[in-house]
Computed example of a mutant assay.
Amino acid sequence: MLLDTAVHQALGLHNYTPERELRLLPVVSQPDGGPWLELLWQLCAHLQRLGYPVAVLDGTALESHHSPGLAQLLGTRPWSGAEALDGATGGHSLAVLPAARGLAWLAGQAQLGNNAAMHRLQPLLRGYAAVVLYAPPEQLAPLLLGSASIPLVMTGPGAQGMVRSYRQLKHMALHAGVRCTVAAIVPPQSGTQPRQTAEALATLQRSAHKHLCQQIHTTTVAAARAQDIQRLALQLMENAGTLDTAMPLLHARGARASATPLDRSH
Rank of each mutant, 00 (worst) to 15 (best):
Y16R: 09
H14C: 05
L236K: 05
L25S: 00
L262W: 14
H66W: 15
S165W: 10
Q109K: 11
G113F: 10
P137S: 12
S80N: 04
H209Y: 13
S93K: 11
G87D: 04
H217V: 12
G87W: 15
L169G: 00
R164S: 03
L97T: 02
A222D: 03
A6V: 09
T5M: 07
L236P: 03
C44Y: 05
R101H: 12
D244L: 04
T242V: 13
Y128R: 01
D86P: 00
A224C: 04
Q42S: 09
H211M: 11
L169M: 10
L13M: 11
A200H: 08
T260W: 14
Q193V: 09
A61K: 07
L39H: 07
W41N: 00
V182M: 02
P18R: 14
Q111D: 03
T181I: 10
S149F: 08
P142W: 07
G12Q: 10
G12H: 10
P261M: 12
H14G: 03
P35A: 12
P137T: 14
W105H: 09
R23L: 10
V7L: 07
T155A: 05
A252K: 08
P137A: 11
N114T: 10
A240W: 11
L243R: 04
M162C: 13
R77N: 10
L112C: 08
A95H: 03
A84G: 05
P142D: 01
E83V: 15
H8P: 00
L204Q: 06
Q227V: 11
C213P: 02
G254R: 01
D32W: 15
V221R: 04
A100Q: 14
L2P: 04
S207C: 08
M1C: 08
A257I: 01
L57H: 09
A82V: 12
V54H: 02
Y166T: 02
L112V: 07
E138V: 13
H65C: 04
S149C: 07
V221H: 06
P142Y: 08
L62C: 07
Q189R: 13
T76D: 11
G59C: 05
K210N: 11
L2A: 14
G12N: 06
Q160E: 05
V221F: 11
L39M: 11
P136S: 03
P151W: 08
A198V: 12
L40N: 02
H65L: 10
P53W: 04
D58S: 06
Q193A: 08
L11N: 05
L73Q: 03
L144M: 05
H251N: 02
L125E: 01
P142T: 04
L97Q: 01
H66E: 06
A255F: 10
L152W: 13
A100R: 15
D263A: 05
H171L: 12
